[in-house]
Design a protein around this nucleic acid. Structure first.
Lengths: 359, 359
DNA sequence: ACGCCCGATGTGAGCGTTAACACTGGCCGC
DNA sequence: GCGGCCAGTGTTAACGCTCACATCGGGCGT
């Protein structure tokens, strides 16, 4: 095996019969194309960049030469001189939550359409240090802008510390910072959910909330509290979860044990899923006995038992909007101090119904 | 020594001793660091690349200057001259399936540890053309290698057409190609699931399979058929799904209508989730009346109703292994003709039990 | 017909880095 | 004591591209 290596190597480097080089064939560069087309390298460059003043005939000759040589512009050389890498950075949290994943794809798609590449830097935890490290990695690659999907308070701090001369957009991070942000109207979404339950006739709406250091969880909590505790009503104490089905299950068990509970708003679908199971185990039929509303509208939501009423987030739209916001900054060179909030949308399925006791 | 800095300075910008020039301040380059440290730019380069022959004292001076100027090496310039971009490409399918998402993160993490960046190119559909386009986009960025997570037959064809001088690894694409592959032992995993059901005493094990143009679906189908139809047994006809909960639900309804059905193996957890709901609706308790096994072990699996017995895939491991395989190629410059199969693992929960009729 | 301007093209100079080689001294061996 | 070597450093030339400017015909106004 070890003795084989040199041979294989020699094969690669073996003298090419047809021409000069003893090295492996270098891929064609602009000069090669120019030579073949009988023009100067600069004309090739012009063709490449759609410069207007190139005769159609010349352009065709050049294009043809490019095709013949399978020419690929060297992006490093171009970046070196133009100081534009045509690359955007994406900081993502290592999670299998559907939101981040689908935003990633929609961002990449939108970036591609805008002529940009996207490079990723993931972080395992959302502490300030890790996020800053990830951003630095991206900066080392000379990205022209960064979208950060790091929806935790500590990460927001990190973003605030990023030098202002670099384009940056945060997604789902609340508003407590001067970094441009894109996010869902979580408070409004929560109200949608709670009002739906209230409209059905429920007296008290319980809540299983997400981690308190996630701005989105807090916003949903606030929205719930505002409506569930309005007028003469008093909002019950919120149960805390961590977005996981497990935590929803545990909170659900507590809720199931209380016969007075008739309505639950969960801060995300995964927790709702767990709650649904806890309720089923406790012999409390949904929606007959207890109504449940989730948040996110994961693809499985329509197929849970029962199909889940939930607040839909348009992750694709979130991704696209964040890219737009970033491109504005890249275009103007300055930070856009603007926050974008997308409107949520309630999807009513079968996990909600009027309370049994009344009407 | 030249008379102070005037000459060099005048070249860079008009007088202005120290204040802001009309232009934005250019970020420091190697030459600036060299000047400040009183050495040549080459010495700075040596420090940067840990070249041994630099006096410790000199190195410290240089390092200090770098820090003072917040110097960041220009990666484009480095790439231009070394012909190494330190970047890997990832072709991913726009899906929210957990598998791809978690592999993405594990690949990025492993790449980072190996000193590489990762750039992504997503495809909306897995036809040959789209995949080839995505690969070309990556090639335009001069990536040093590509990992493709495009688990569909047509995509496999596309990979086979990629020039052999570019490092490439496919994930979850079966074996029908000469491209190095990493994947789970799907056939073995299916056998694990079916044997588990058989061992419990079930006579016939039904199957809801994934799309037939996905190699992984076929492998699972083959594994099921081999065991479920062994000996005197005859395997039932497989119902076809498309990985979605919806398709699982529909197949589940058909199965639920047949009282003789006692055991179902679903090609993934999402379809199992749908099947679970269909069974529940039809009043066929799981596992009392029907046993169900899934595949993947999604995070929600333990919280379904009932908790799902399933075949676990180690997505993180898959990602890491594919990176290793790619790095081997990048290291040696040749394709590694080697396929890696990871062993699956059965996780028994509460969706499986012996059939009611016997024992 | 003359100068002018403009469309079409070529020339030269960088962009910031690494590679290859040249140049210092000081220390070694004999 | 002198050639040689080696650690430590500087000098110069790429790398492949774009930008600014130079060049060169020819149509056009007067």
């Amino acid at each position: 095996m070890v003795a084989q290596r040199p041979i294989a190597d020699r094969e690669r480097a073996a003298a090419a019969p047809d021409a000069e080089r003893s090295e492996a064939r270098r891929s064609a560069v602009m000069m090669d194309v120019a030579r073949l087309a009988g023009v100067s390298h600069q004309t090739v460059s012009r063709v490449l960049n759609d410069h207007p003043s190139v005769r159609a005939q010349t352009r065709d000759r050049v294009l043809d030469a490019m095709r013949q040589l399978d020419y690929r512009p060297n992006s490093a050389a171009r970046t070196l001189v133009t100081r534009k890498s045509q690359t955007l950075g994406l900081v993502g949290y290592e999670t299998t939550l559907v939101g981040p994943a689908s935003m990633l794809y929609s961002i990449e798609g939108a970036a591609r359409r805008a002529g940009y590449f996207v490079s990723i830097a993931s972080v395992q935890s959302l502490d300030t240090r890790s996020v800053l490290d990830a951003i630095n990695r991206l900066r080392d690659q000379a990205v022209e802008g960064i979208i950060a999907i790091v929806p935790q308070e500590s990460a927001v701090e990190a973003l605030a510390r990023v030098p202002h001369d670099i384009a940056l957009v945060g997604v789902g991070l609340g508003e407590a910072s001067d970094v441009p942000m894109v996010g869902l109207d979580n408070t409004g979404g929560a109200k949608l959910a709670v009002n739906h339950l209230l409209d059905l006739g429920h007296e008290r709406v319980h809540h299983i909330c997400g981690p308190r250091d996630w701005p989105e969880a807090n916003e949903r909590l606030a929205g719930w509290r505002e409506v569930a505790g309005a007028g003469t009503r008093r909002a019950p104490v919120a149960l805390s979860g961590d977005w996981s089905a497990r935590s929803g299950y545990e909170a659900g068990r507590k809720l199931a044990a209380d016969r007075k509970v008739t309505a639950v708003f969960c801060a995300n679908d995964h927790m709702a899923l767990g709650a649904l199971r806890a309720l089923a185990e406790a012999g409390r039929p949904v929606p007959g006995d207890v109504s449940v509303v989730g948040f996110d509208d994961i693809p499985e939501a329509p197929y849970l038992i029962p199909p889940l009423t939930t607040v839909q987030q348009d992750f694709g739209g979130l991704g696209r909007r964040s890219l737009e916001l970033l491109m504005e900054q890249v275009g103007t060179g300055g930070r856009t101090h603007r926050n974008v909030r997308l409107a949520p949308h309630l999807v009513v399925r079968n996990s909600t119904a009027p309370p049994r006791s009344r009407s």
